[in-house]
Design a protein around this nucleic acid. Structure first.
Lengths: 355, 355
DNA sequence: TCGTCCCCTGTGAGCGCTAACATCACCGCG
DNA sequence: CGCGGTGATGTTAGCGCTCACAGGGGACGA
């Protein structure tokens, strides 16, 4: 493991004592310099700094962590999907963590069953993380959070079980309402829905927002079709919807599925938006370049990432001093109107917003 | 920091000595049980296991790391892009790392200048990682790798400076050749190219592969247009190409830009593939659902991730025992033929491969 | 019966750092 | 001139674990 001193002792990486020896002070003074203690004379500080430089000294954060009990490391549990949402959130978190002086270690879940979540969290705990962010929206996985011993600050991102952990997320219900409302306002008699997978909490909230808006407006509530977030499932839903002539407006639960639906409608010669208006969800960077440009609901994943990090850090730093960790935070969604929606019956007006 | 023993000493989390005491053995025997040493009698082992269970003991990996010098942690430097490629590679790496018993800590780079790379690597080094994977394809950033002190095993993923560190990547040159060859074989007199950003090493290799294939076939080499991987830039390139009537085949350096190009061609009423054949690169999950389905070059990012991890782990474990770290590995790309390409002049035959 | 080996277990010394206290020189004050 | 106070530094103990070695007992062969 260590440098076995055989042959002429290769120079191990220098430690505090080495620096101290060179600077003519004790290792503790070196420590003081590193940690910015005020009780070090300027001349000593300079000598220590010079010695560090000369030796190429690098503090050993493992040892420091052992001594202080702080690792400055946070864990992120995420499904290993490369979906736009989770990936953007992860990077938002990393950026914010960097700024706050924390490291991010990731534990992706291959499967989404109940067992995998505790296993992932245990791995992170073992690694010594000081807090955990969970970016998983599967209901079963989220349920499994209830079994997790609460000895570690934990924040659910995107979606999570109510009243167990603080939650930071975009308001899915409101997003779905915006989308549905927009279509209704355009004069469509009702709005069909292509939902995400049944196990997804976000998908459920989008269904709820859609349904509530329809009911509130006195519009009939069609049976939603279910997809799996993938373009393929949107395509299949599109084929079914294309066969029903009365369908004039569809709210699709994410942009990828909307792409598939657009494709199916195109093949069936149902013109969009002239015959059918379509709204997506997420506002992926590609959405403006679908044919036609997709009206969709923007989620600010970067904001979700940085807010969730802030909540977690607050919980960590408050721990023990009696503060209740603040109860999460909700990010507002935003409707982005493009060319895939138009007033019912007024198929001629279209607008392109590609610059 | 630690549990300050005021009031009635809240039970701190148990340590080896506590387990040992309960089981009536020394802490060292507990350590042996944990590390699976053979020299422990079955009855002792059982008692220790029971004590661990009863106390809810969890080994402290920080302390272990300090004692052994091994953190079982690997760092990944990546641009914070949410592009399909880097994100998939990251998750491929994580999965493989998990299997190999390593943790992954990430350091994303906000900027792609020369200074950010050393800074990111330093952060990781400070954190105590045992090796580093770099998933950055920007030439400047990759150049900065040469300045990095080679005291830590490092593997470049996706692209990197030649002959400095082992490199694992999909063969970009070959991928571009497959795409170009395919178009040429279809009878197109030449193939236009929409390239990625000039600083991207992958973009450069794709240009090189494209150019070489054309030259080799004696076809004229048009000036490539440059994009930035985003659909928007593909759209603009598409508008320019749509104006030139002799353009019959385009190789676009990634699928997102291809989407934008498809859109522009559609707006300009240039039918695809009847008038213009298009090939993308990456094979994102959405590519089959573009209109028309996109012929593209598949990169197996998962494979890249796991191979690069394997190379890194090998380098780490070989370190010091005299083995030369093996020199990286190249993953073969695969051409996926869909409906966006067709023989020159034979605009009638199309195939859909959506199931 | 004794020596030897092997299996199992314990002891002590670190890993590199920080926290808490001890020490020392020096200052100003009464 | 002696006192407490203050700033600069050193000393000593850990943090929780592993490593290297020391030992004790039983099995086995001579």
């Amino acid at each position: 493991m260590q440098d076995d001193g055989r042959s002429q002792a290769r120079p191990r990486s220098p430690v505090m004592a080495d620096v101290g020896r060179l600077a003519g002070v004790s290792h503790q003074t070196v420590s003081r310099v590193i940690n910015g203690s005020r009780h070090v004379s300027p001349s000593t500080r300079a000598r220590v700094l010079a010695a560090m430089e000369q030796l190429g000294y690098r503090p050993n954060s493992i040892a420091r962590a052992l001594a202080t009990g702080h690792t400055n490391t946070l864990g992120v549990v995420s499904s290993d999907s490369t979906l736009y949402g989770p990936a953007s959130t992860l990077f938002g978190i990393e950026r914010a963590a960097h700024l706050a002086g924390y490291f991010i270690v990731i534990a992706s879940m291959k499967a989404l069953d109940r067992g995998t979540m505790p296993e992932a969290i245990d791995r992170l705990r073992l690694h010594g993380v000081e807090g955990i962010l969970v970016i998983v929206s599967d209901a079963d996985a989220a349920d499994a959070l209830s079994d997790v011993s609460p000895d570690l600050p934990l924040v659910a991102v995107v979606a999570g079980p109510e009243r167990t952990f603080p939650l930071v997320s975009v308001d899915q219900f409101e997003g779905a309402r915006l989308a549905t409302r927009h279509l209704l306002d355009l004069g469509h008699p009702t709005v069909h829905h292509v939902a995400g997978p049944p196990n997804s909490l976000e998908a459920r909230q989008r269904i709820a927002g859609w349904r509530a808006t329809l009911e509130e407006a006195g519009a009939p509530v069609p049976t939603p079709l279910v997809g799996d977030w993938g373009a393929r499932s949107g395509y299949h839903a599109g084929r079914r919807l294309a066969r029903e002539p009365q369908v004039s407006a569809v709210f699709v639960a994410n942009d990828q599925m909307a792409l598939g639906l657009l494709r199916a409608m195109h093949e069936a010669d149902r013109r969009i938006p002239d015959e059918v208006s379509v709204v997506g969800f997420d506002d992926t960077p590609e959405a403006p370049y679908f044919t036609p440009s997709l009206t969709t609901v923007r989620q600010d994943f970067g904001e979700v990432g940085s807010r969730s990090l802030a909540v977690l850090v607050r919980a960590i730093e408050a721990d023990g001093s009696g503060h209740r960790p603040q109860e999460g935070s909700i990010v507002a969604p935003e409707l982005i109107i493009r060319a895939s929606t138009v007033a019912h019956g007024a198929g001629s007006m279209r607008f392109h917003d590609i610059g």
